[in-house]
Structures are given as structure tokens and as C-alpha cells.
């Protein structure tokens, strides 16, 4: 049975979470350095998270859907 189609909002949320997860993986080393910097206080975590996730704006809703739903598709018929 086909899975229900996800709403744009769900897609956006899933994509943001994937984007953040991907970014923290790719920049893990740099993020550690930032955490050790002098000016890392108060709102710094919030700044970091918001700065990283604003990149989702580069992806149109269709692109986000393409990427997020790739995980939902079954293995090819091969």
C-alpha cells in the first residue's frame, strides 16, 4: 500500500533535520573548534543551529521532497 503523501510542512521539518545532521557530520571538527572559542556563550548554540539550518533555503520544496523521500522509497526492483 502506498504511504500517505507527506505535507510540505512535514517534508520541510524532515529536511531541516537531515540538513542539520548532515552539516554537523561534515563540519564536526570545525564545530568543536567553535565551541572552544572565547565568544561561545549565551546564545551561541542557538546562533550556530540557526546559521547552519538557514541553508535549507537553498533548496526548493520540490528538491527537499526529492531528497527526503529518497529514504522512503523501496529498493529498486532489481
Amino acid at each position: 500500500m502506498a504511504a500517505p503523501v507527506k505535507s510540505d510542512k512535514e517534508i520541510a521539518a524532515e529536511f531541516t533535520s537531515y540538513y542539520l545532521q548532515r552539516a554537523t557530520k561534515e563540519f564536526a571538527e570545525d564545530l568543536d573548534k567553535v565551541r572552544a572559542a572565547d565568544d561561545f556563550k549565551n546564545d551561541a548554540v542557538q546562533i550556530l543551529v540557526s546559521a547552519l539550518q538557514q541553508g535549507t533555503a537553498l533548496f526548493s520544496p520540490e528538491e527537499q521532497r526529492r531528497i527526503v523521500t529518497a529514504a522512503d522509497r523501496p529498493e529498486s526492483k532489481s
Binding site: V34, A37, D39, L48, Q54
Partner: peptide
């Protein structure tokens, strides 16, 4: 500069 301030500024400029 790899600091929270630079990242904050970059995010602001991006917006």
C-alpha cells in the same frame, strides 16, 4: 575567523 561571532555575522548577512 572560526568563532561564534563570525558565524552569527555570516548568518545575518545571509538573511
Amino acid at each position: 575567523k572560526l568563532s561564534a561571532t563570525w558565524i552569527g555575522y555570516a548568518a545575518f548577512l545571509f538573511n
